[in-house]
Design a protein around this nucleic acid. Sequence first.
DNA 1: CGTAAAATCCGAAACGTTTTGGAAAAAGTT
DNA 2: AACTTTTTCCAAAACGTTTCGGATTTTACG
Lengths: 338, 338
Amino acid sequence: MATIKDIAKIAGVSVTTVSRALNGYSDVNENTRQKIIEIAKQLNYSPNTLARSLVMNKSKTIGLLVSGLKRESSKDNFTFEVLAGVNQYVGETDYDMILFSTNSTKQREKTYTQLCRERRVDGAILQGIRIDDPYLQEVVESDIPCVLIDIPIESETVGYVTTDNVLGARKAVQHLIDLGHKNIAMINGYEFALVSQKRLEGYRRALLEANLPFYTHWVVDGKFEEEIAEQEALRLLKQYPEITAFFCASDLMALAVIKAVKKLGKRVPEDIAVIGYDDIFLASYSTPPLSTVAQNIFAMGYEAAKLLIEMLEGKAESHVKVLETELKIRESTVKNHL
Amino acid sequence: MATIKDIAKIAGVSVTTVSRALNGYSDVNENTRQKIIEIAKQLNYSPNTLARSLVMNKSKTIGLLVSGLKRESSKDNFTFEVLAGVNQYVGETDYDMILFSTNSTKQREKTYTQLCRERRVDGAILQGIRIDDPYLQEVVESDIPCVLIDIPIESETVGYVTTDNVLGARKAVQHLIDLGHKNIAMINGYEFALVSQKRLEGYRRALLEANLPFYTHWVVDGKFEEEIAEQEALRLLKQYPEITAFFCASDLMALAVIKAVKKLGKRVPEDIAVIGYDDIFLASYSTPPLSTVAQNIFAMGYEAAKLLIEMLEGKAESHVKVLETELKIRESTVKNHL
DNA sequence: CGTAAAATCCGAAACGTTTTGGAAAAAGTT
DNA sequence: AACTTTTTCCAAAACGTTTCGGATTTTACG
């Protein structure tokens, strides 16, 4: 493979000159520059990024650390959309992206930090890492610039992007209240998931604002799993027949709740209204189509990449970005809506 | 960041020894090795892969070139599953993976080959590249080892993994024939898509084997798009009322066909049977659940990565892998199945 | 004890770039 | 003609690693 040296030899100049010519420095004669470019083209020259990175001490590479890059996670394609968003922005720059999956064998042997340092990534984006993951702390405390998705930690070298989960949940519950519901249960996700805490907060706030009582026994964790959500919904519906609406922390769980409602011979939304969270692809295809709080996950990925690269170039004003959510009203809460 | 030199200085040995100690060579005393390892640990040393790759002339990196890493492609998450599969296998090795998306701005400026050569990937996996993409030829003709997904090109340096699309289609159509259907239309994908050609071939073969006539006007291209598929199905159903079944080259199109059938006031499967291809997530959730030909896309990614790395290590017996498909019979062809 | 063999170590070159600090040549200015 | 300035070029060092070829020390053995 042709190197800068080969070009230099043929052109009869030093490697310095070739390097500077190819990189557009002004201290090389335009004629020799053209000659060099011509030769480079003929030799089909590609710069060796490895060598360049080594001497420049930056790789123009960002690492994307994701958990949940497994088969099952194609249901909610959160990870995929983040990935696509990151990829989109990265593609607009001269950075490349290297993908580390954390549920691999490697993870157990090497920490995220090690992976990043070995590959000399300039920065990293972390997605789907659990808040109690010991390695998370390690990355955050390292000097590797990184931006987190849905985890609000901020420092000199770390930023994050998230959506306003409190507001999102509030809007959802408010929508139910506006429809006249007074007895609204919540199927939450996972106690230690930050988004769950936030969405619970939004649920509570909405009730409070409407002067409705908040019952802790009407809030259950579905662990983001369909089966559990279905069981819990069945239990709640039997135990508290006064419940007329469900707010669920994920669409998948909301779909499970609908299933439960149907099993009891009741109708959605006439008897029980159900609203989800995420706006996964399935939501608009289900029967009835699911009302939900849409997050623009693609945008989260895009903004995360943008933020990270701005941080790397030292031109980030803020280290945090909060995106908007959108209430999508479909027929699981309002019959014949549009 | 600590280097091998720092370790050498502290340990009072040469860099050579440190290198060889850390890499497990046998010509270093076990005591000094332990001392070196200890120091490395204390300095929190991580080897610089860039430097290593530079001198070894291999990067232990594979490139994943995908098209279709865009927002819309989350419907059929083909790309995602391939990615997950590749990632899975790569995670089991000491390789890492760098992701190139071809629908980015960069693509227009740099060819795939350039991207690969600059980043010095050892090999590449190509997914979703159109068969008439001029850059495809370039990669294949370059000396970069690569494996293609669903494109049967084989050479010294290129292999591929695919599923048996002819057989898959044949099984689907045979299933319809077994149910007593004699007038079966096909909604195909895209003329230049290889899978479409193969599936058409399978459709034709199944008809032939059953001594049923093959009408070219009963085969239309839906371009893998829902709207087109729906329109074409409507047109066919009106024009040829004798049609009782549809074989579709993708699940999304099959769902669109079901929509069309319903619009005409007919029932699936009683009046019209519909079978798809892919087994996307949505297929099992639709009403009625969609019969389809399932491809294990995750496995395709996994096998692609495996094949590539075997090729890189020089231990690949064959350069091609053909995976099986599975006929999934649901209620869009057989009422009350199970 | 002397020598052969084995064990342990190391210096230096190499990988392909960028960059620093000038040097040489050309052009401009009195 | 004698300078200054500008333009154009380059040698050498540096980045962090691996590896080749050999040197030195220790051990084994007669």
